[in-house]
C-alpha cells in the first residue's frame, strides 16, 4: 500500500547550520509514527516543513501523493496540527475558538457548530464552553488544541509534543484520546521527548539527532537490537544520542 506520508532526503539549512540533514521515512495508513530526539535534533523543523509552514532547503515530502513544494494548500486541508505551543485565541471562548478555526477550512457554520459540539463533548470541555482561554488549566488548553486539530476531520494528525508540561492525569487523558483515534485508523505523526509516551503510543519510530536519523524500528525492535531486550526505550535513546546536555 502507498504510504500516506513520504519524506525523501529532507533538508533544511539555516545559514551554515544543517538543522535537518537528509531525513527519509514513510508513514503507512493508520500508523502512529514517532519522531524522537533531544532538543535541537530537528524534530520541530521537520514537522514545520511537513505542515507547509517552512520552505524546504532540499528533498521532498508528499502527503497523500501531494507534494509540499507544489500543493501546500491541498495538504493543509487534510492535516490536523496540534502544536507544541498554546496558540489558542485568547480573546475568544472555548466554543468560539473552534468555530473561528473551522472557517479557515471553509466549513459552513451549521456543520462547524455540529462538529464543535461533538468535539467539546468528546474532550470533556462542556463545563468551559463559554469561558475565556485564560481561565483554562494547562491540560484543558492542550485538550482544546487537540479538539481544534480535529475540526476539519483530518486524514493525518500531527502531534508536536502534545503532553509537554502536563500533570500525569492530563497526560493519560491525551494518551487515551490518541489511542482512540488510532483505533479508528487515523494516521498520526507524534514528536516527543517523553520516551514512555513514544513506547506506549507509537507503532514505529525514528530517533533523530543533529538533523539525521540515527535509528528506526518498532520500540520492541530497538530494545532488542541495542539492549538485548533488557531495558526500556529510554535506555536505547540515551545510548544512541549520548548523555550530553543539549540546548537549542
Amino acid at each position: 500500500m502507498d504510504p500516506v506520508i513520504k519524506v525523501t532526503d529532507l533538508r533544511k539549512n539555516y545559514g551554515g547550520l544543517r538543522a535537518v540533514n537528509g531525513v527519509d521515512f514513510e508513514i503507512g495508513r493508520g500508523e502512529c509514527f514517532g519522531l524522537l530526539g533531544p532538543n535541537g535534533a530537528g524534530k520541530t523543523t521537520t514537522v514545520k516543513m511537513l505542515t507547509c509552514a517552512l520552505p524546504l532547503s532540499g528533498g521532498d515530502i508528499t502527503v497523500e501523493g501531494m507534494s509540499v513544494n507544489k500543493d501546500p494548500r491541498g495538504i493543509k486541508y487534510i492535516l490536523g496540527v496540534c502544536p507544541q505551543e498554546v496558540n489558542l485565541d485568547p480573546d475568544f471562548s472555548v466554543l468560539k475558538n473552534l468555530l473561528v478555526y473551522s472557517r479557515y477550512f471553509d466549513i459552513p457554520y451549521s456543520e462547524a457548530r455540529k462538529r464543535a459540539v461533538e468535539l467539546i463533548d468528546r474532550f470533556h470541555l462542556h463545563d468551559k464552553l463559554e469561558r475565556p482561554i485564560e481561565d483554562l488549566s494547562g491540560g484543558l488548553k492542550k485538550r482544546l488544541l487537540l479538539a481544534r486539530a480535529l475540526i476539519n476531520r483530518p486524514r493525518v494528525l500531527i502531534l508536536d509534543e502534545p503532553t509537554t508540561g502536563l500533570d500525569p492525569q492530563s497526560r493519560r487523558q491525551i494518551w487515551d484520546e490518541v489511542r482512540g483515534m488510532k483505533s479508528n485508523g487515523l494516521t498520526t505523526l507524534l514528536t516527543t521527548h517523553y520516551i514512555e509516551e513514544a513506547e506506549l503510543l507509537c507503532d514505529r519510530l525514528v530517533i533523530v539527532d543533529a538533523g539525521k536519523i540515527v535509528e528506526q524500528g518498532t520500540p520492541q525492535e530497538l530494545i532488542l537490537k541495542h539492549l538485548d531486550g533488557k531495558g526500556n526505550l529510554e535506555d536505547v535513546f540515551l545510548k544512541l544520542t549520548g548523555r550530553n546536555l543539549r540546548d537549542e
Partner: peptide, 11 residues
Amino acid sequence: QKTFDAIINTP
C-alpha cells in the same frame, strides 16, 4: 499570541 503560527497550519 502566536495567532499567525496557528493559522498558517490551515489552508
